[in-house]
């Protein structure tokens, strides 16, 4: 196989795995922002919390990696309801600035708590054997962890797509994103719907946080460092759009990976350049409503 083709396949593969991580972590943020217009800068903190729960469960209690991911997602999803009901709810009608400040404050507190509990050094996680090796496809071998990530991502995309497009609740969410007042006036309980999507979204973020440990390592700064990426995916994809979030995650995941392969010195430059170009042309993102 020619050299450039191998590089292209590698970029596509790693980019796809990265994109799936981005999608899983950001999709909740996109839907909650689309529903309530709430700028939640603490979303990265929920992801980080999920990651640390996975670290604790696997390292201290010896629970397997996959069950730990599930426990982390459910726990964080449940705890996020408390935040939504107790804090966020008060600020739905407040300005962007106030929402930004409240959630940045929460993110700072989460980072400090994580530093206190786990220390500033990046953590790793023990993987089961079937996720450790490589899958050999003849011309190149691929890490099986990334293959797992891609499969999991595809499964989740399918499930979410079905839930969003084919179920009653999904239809209600789409209606509320489109026109909140109208949805309320035909009897949809948007508040309850929001609490539900917020919990699911935060749970998925926690899952993403758990999955990220193997990719980037997990340190307390995760909450803010990767938050910027999640926000970019949401903004580029368009608020409240599943399709848009997936598109944005793919574009950003693959282009960032490509940039790192071909021009490593540029760092994250490509992501930001793309963000600026897309937003200047389509301020509401790929599938957002202007």
């Amino acid at each position: 196989m020619p050299h450039f083709a191998i590089i292209a396949v590698s970029i596509l593969f790693d980019g796809l795995a990265y994109a799936m991580f981005l999608f899983i972590t950001s999709v909740g943020l996109s839907v909650t922002m689309g529903l309530m217009g709430f700028v939640n800068l603490a979303h990265g903190a929920f992801a980080m919390a999920g990651g640390y729960i996975v670290v604790s469960l696997t390292r201290n209690l010896g629970i397997g990696f996959v069950p730990s991911l599930a426990v982390a997602a459910v726990t964080v999803g449940a705890v996020s309801v408390v935040f939504e009901r107790g804090l966020y709810r008060r600020l739905y009608k407040a300005t962007d600035l106030e929402q930004v400040l409240l959630t940045i404050g929460l993110a700072f507190m989460a980072i400090a708590t994580a530093t206190y509990l786990y220390g500033p050094i990046p953590k790793s996680v023990p993987l089961p054997e079937w996720l450790q090796g490589d899958i050999n496809l003849g011309f190149r071998s691929f890490p099986s962890y990334r293959a797992f990530l891609i499969v999991l991502g595809v499964v989740l995309v399918t499930v979410l797509w079905y839930a969003f497009e084919r179920t009653n609740i999904g239809a209600k969410i789409r209606a509320a994103v489109d026109n909140r007042r109208m949805a309320e006036s035909v009897g949809i309980n948007v508040d309850l719907l929001f609490t539900l999507t917020f919990a699911v979204g935060s749970g998925l973020a926690a899952l993403g946080g758990g999955l990220a440990i193997q990719l980037f390592g997990l340190s307390p700064s995760f909450a803010v460092l990767y938050l910027v990426l999640f926000l970019i995916v949401v903004a580029v994809g368009g608020l409240g759009s599943l399709k848009g979030t997936l598109m944005a995650a793919l574009v950003i995941g693959i282009i960032d990976t490509g940039g790192k392969y071909l021009l490593a010195e540029a760092g994250g430059f490509f992501i930001y350049a793309i963000t600026v170009v897309v937003l200047l042309i389509k301020p509401a993102g790929f599938y957002g409503r202007e």
């Binding site: 962007d96 903004a235 010195e265 994250g268 430059f269 930001y272 509401a284």
Partner: peptide, 20 residues
């Protein structure tokens, strides 16, 4: 959100350019 992201991206792009 669009403005937030654009201003944030501008600052980081300058930083990345400096690093480049």
């Amino acid at each position: 959100l669009t403005l937030l992201m654009l201003t944030l991206a501008t600052a980081i792009m300058l930083q990345e350019t400096g690093n480049l």
